[in-house]
Write a protein that binds this DNA or RNA. Sequence first.
DNA 1: GTCAATGATCGTGTATACAAGAAGCGCTTT
DNA 2: AAAGCGCTTCTTGTATACACGATCATTGAC
Lengths: 216, 216
Amino acid sequence: MSENVGRWLRDEIENSILSNEFSPGERLDEMVLATRFGVSRTPVREALMQLDAIGLIEIRPRRGAIVIDPGPHRVYEMFEVMAELEGLAGSLAARRLDKASREAITATHSRCEQSAAAGDSDAYYYDNEEFHKAIYAAGRSEFLEEQCVQLHRRLRPYRRLQLRVRNRLSTSFSEHCAIVDAIFAGNGDEARRLLRTHVGIQGERFSDLVASMAAR
Amino acid sequence: MSENVGRWLRDEIENSILSNEFSPGERLDEMVLATRFGVSRTPVREALMQLDAIGLIEIRPRRGAIVIDPGPHRVYEMFEVMAELEGLAGSLAARRLDKASREAITATHSRCEQSAAAGDSDAYYYDNEEFHKAIYAAGRSEFLEEQCVQLHRRLRPYRRLQLRVRNRLSTSFSEHCAIVDAIFAGNGDEARRLLRTHVGIQGERFSDLVASMAAR
DNA sequence: GTCAATGATCGTGTATACAAGAAGCGCTTT
DNA sequence: AAAGCGCTTCTTGTATACACGATCATTGAC
């Protein structure tokens, strides 16, 4: 538990939303949350205000808070922006790569390789996250890194759905290989291009996403 | 005044920060703000929590809130990300341009022309903002538009400093012309490239920024 | 039978009260 | 005189109380 209850609650509720424990459209009752976490309404409200500011929930005056439902189209738009930011991170990483970052990328990359070879999509899901974070960090732009991590978090539930698609694991990993090569070769433009297509959702992958979102 | 005091206060304090009325590093006393705006501490705290979530201030537990000082390097990073997002917006605008967006861009663009011709940097500052917003909107990606507007807001004080640099007005406007041409020609890649360099801070413009920030 | 209006109830918005921690100041001691 | 320790005071963190608005149900009229 963090040093102040409000921040702890924010993380707690945020996780509950991102792990789909609170579904989109669901109403978040302040009193229910307060008793559930054993605190008063005050820190609950503070947590909700923050989540509203971040854009995870919407507080309608005098009508309570509801979890925002992005909808397939908006999720697509978020992936589109994510692709752009990752592309930038990749190009910066290729330019600014140092020893520590190189080792971090190599390490997470080989962990992805193992998970992919084992066909363990849960493990790959986690390792993939670490791999991408290693690239953000290698870009050496704190602000960009924060933006990437934040958006990455918000897209987490949808990325999980995507990995279930047939052959996605091996496809994803071979794309990683090319990305690593480009970054290590110092080829920023190529790294940018590869990451954009790797992260973006084009063609049939969009209908896959829509289908899996509708299935819930 | 908005329907709820907390949100109103958030906007009010946010504006005060962005217009440099509260300087970076300054401590925001809850009680002072409360009496200043004639409300109790509760809505003030809610506003501060939101600003903390957005990243404009930092609330250190039991030690109060301070306005975050990005520092020149971080501001540079923010411009870098802004350039990338604007580039994406421009390329989307070129692809998806419709009649209404085309007219909006034309209208704001010609207003920029007038301000630039008049040498009125305050008017240009405002018209420029509208011009860029017209491009965001033309991209037809709600999420991207929101991200752009938000980052644009945060960079506002620094952009203002930049316009003071000699000849920046006419340079900026001629860049606008090329951007408009590319978008209207449906040339997404060119629009992206031009916007990236237009928004980004390269070479001597970075030292200009640092110098003007240090001057305050 | 259906629609509208009014009242009751529930939940949010704001204020205030109380508790706990941090910073500053003064006193004492070396 | 300087440094360290302790106390006081001020500010933040959380709880609770109260007020206002919204929603829902019930009743009456058409």
